[in-house]
């Protein structure tokens, strides 16, 4: 029971770290239920209050978590609580309580300010950035894509198996299916039992920080038949890569794309 309650609490904090919008939404739900004008308003309030209660009630929380990857995505339950709609409905009700225009405008301004200050503005928080093109993928991904496509056209070698950091490996296949990836999104990699766990951990670490096992990783990547390897410049791998027959085909801002024409796919059994 304690573990369940802790999971509920941590889910709420994960979805709303400060809890402001959740509390405001809950207050709005109660307000609409008790003081909402019209049965539609009270119905919305009643539905929301029930949904909030079910979120916290251990039996229903337990049941819901069973269907939500054992609670890992229990925060999605919170979408059943229409917080945005509740806040908007309550604000509209409050604004239109008075028939005087000046009071309505003042109330609207105060409530709008409250919503903006109580939350986090997506424009200021950097939700959007300058576009790299219609595909809207990272510059690193697009540069890698074009470099590999150009290399395929130039060499005639259509085999392209790339090992790259998550920035590229989670995006490249959105723009082309000509390249297979050694790892996709790191979270979704094949079960660890497929590889030596230590080696795999080094690979993941390699793309995020320095490690002393770079030569082991490079050797392993060649063994895994990666003929393209994208490596950050800060990782001290150049000698290992050159020794294994890789050459740089593209130099990025702080990374290099390496290619080894001798690495071929595994021959298919007849």
């Amino acid at each position: 029971m304690a573990a369940l309650l802790e999971l509920i609490r941590s889910t709420l904090l994960r979805a709303d770290p400060k809890g402001i919008y959740f509390i405001l939404g809950a207050c709005a739900a109660v307000f609409l239920l008790v003081r909402g004008r019209g049965k539609e308003m009270r119905a919305l309030g009643l539905y929301s209050v029930i949904a909030i209660a079910l979120f916290f009630l251990p039996p229903t929380a337990y049941l819901a978590m069973k269907f939500m990857r054992k609670g890992d995505v229990y925060w999605r339950y919170l979408w059943l609580i229409p917080t945005v709609e509740l806040l908007a409905a309550a604000a509209t009700e409050l604004i239109t309580i008075s028939s005087k225009r000046m009071v309505q405008v003042l109330t609207a301004v105060v409530l709008a300010a409250g919503l903006i200050l109580g939350g986090s503005n997506l424009y200021r928080a950097g939700a959007f950035e300058k576009s790299t093109g219609r595909e809207k993928l990272s510059l690193m991904t697009m540069q890698t894509y074009h470099a590999i496509e150009d290399n395929i056209a130039a060499t005639g070698n259509t085999y392209a198996h790339l090992a790259a950091p998550q920035t590229v490996s989670s995006q490249l296949r959105e723009v082309t299916s000509d390249v297979t990836l050694f790892t996709g999104r790191i979270l979704n990699i094949e079960p660890i039992k497929t590889y030596n766990p230590k080696w795999y951990r080094n690979l993941v670490v390699l793309y995020g920080a320095k490690t002393d096992d770079e030569h082991k990783v490079v050797r392993s990547l060649k063994k895994q038949r990666c003929n393209y390897i994208l490596m950050y410049s800060r990782v001290n791998c150049d000698e290992d890569l050159s020794a294994k027959g890789y050459e740089v085909i593209l130099r990025g801002e702080d990374w290099n794309l390496w290619y080894n024409p001798e690495v071929q796919p595994k021959a298919k059994k007849e």
Partner: peptide, 12 residues
């Protein structure tokens, strides 16, 4: 107000 609330929901 739904626009304002949605726009300000980037806290998570």
């Amino acid at each position: 107000f739904t626009f304002l609330a949605a726009m300000s929901s980037y806290y998570a």
